[in-house]
């Protein structure tokens, strides 16, 4: 019902803007853009495609599957999206986000796109780099609210939080596992600490698949 109302509201507002004087027209366009974004998010959430997390959350069990494990199971993109959701909703509060949206459908799309890119034929680090780029490009994480942090120093911006959480998640998918879910969770938080310590490198390498692959390859077995 909410989705329907949003769509109808958007239809009503979608009238020609040209007759309106320029500054007002700009404001109106901006309002429409915002309205479109809100409608998209409501659509995603209502369809169960994006989920809001709170830093007090994290009740669901954490997958212990690595990227290699996921590649070898049926409906890999769904398994990846679920594991990514559970991982990101733990990583983001640790890095300093109090709430935000994580989209499972966008994670699944990112996984499919990374596989279709053929990066996996090179090696698992190339696939991991492609995955990270796809997840960032597709906006898997949105609407983050930074929280007060226990650690001192400059708080991370929303953009940094998004990139570092995804980098930490990808490192975690690559890291060797030893024990059960508790170990997997501690490992993920260690990946977050490492991602933050590599903030400059992650930001610099994100646009270059080969450099990003080299960065992931250099640190995946140092977790």
């Amino acid at each position: 019902m909410l989705r329907f109302t949003m769509k109808r509201g958007r239809g009503f507002l979608d009238t020609p803007l040209d007759p309106i004087p320029s500054p007002i027209s700009d404001v109106a366009r901006s309002v429409l853009r915002d309205f479109d974004q809100i409608a998209d998010r409501v659509n995603d959430m209502a369809a169960g495609l994006s989920r809001r997390f709170l830093d007090s959350g994290g009740g669901e069990s954490l997958s212990t599957a690595t990227l290699e494990d996921i590649e070898h199971i049926g409906h890999a993109e769904i398994a990846f999206a679920q594991a990514a959701y559970h991982g990101l909703t733990r990583a983001l509060p640790h890095l300093g986000a109090s709430e935000g949206l994580v989209s499972e459908v966008r994670s699944a799309e990112a996984y499919k796109a990374a596989i279709q890119s053929g990066a996996a034929e090179k090696d698992r680090f190339a696939l991991a780099a492609a995955l990270m780029q796809e997840m960032v490009d597709r906006g898997v994480i949105r609407d983050l609210l930074p929280a007060a942090r226990e650690e001192e120093g400059e708080p991370l911006t929303e953009e940094e939080l998004e990139k570092l959480a995804i980098f930490a998640l990808i490192l975690w998918f690559l890291a060797e596992r030893q024990d059960g879910p508790e170990d997997a969770e501690a490992l993920l938080l260690t990946c977050c600490d490492m991602a933050e310590a590599l903030k400059t490198e992650v930001t610099e390498c994100l646009g270059d698949a080969e450099r990003l692959r080299a960065l992931l390859s250099a640190y995946a077995d140092k977790i």
């Binding site: 650690e151 120093g153 600490d193 490492m194 933050e196 310590a197 590599l198």
Partner: peptide, 8 residues
């Protein structure tokens, strides 16, 4: 956070 910096 500083300990992670030490390690790197």
């Amino acid at each position: 956070d500083r300990l992670a910096q030490v390690f790197i």
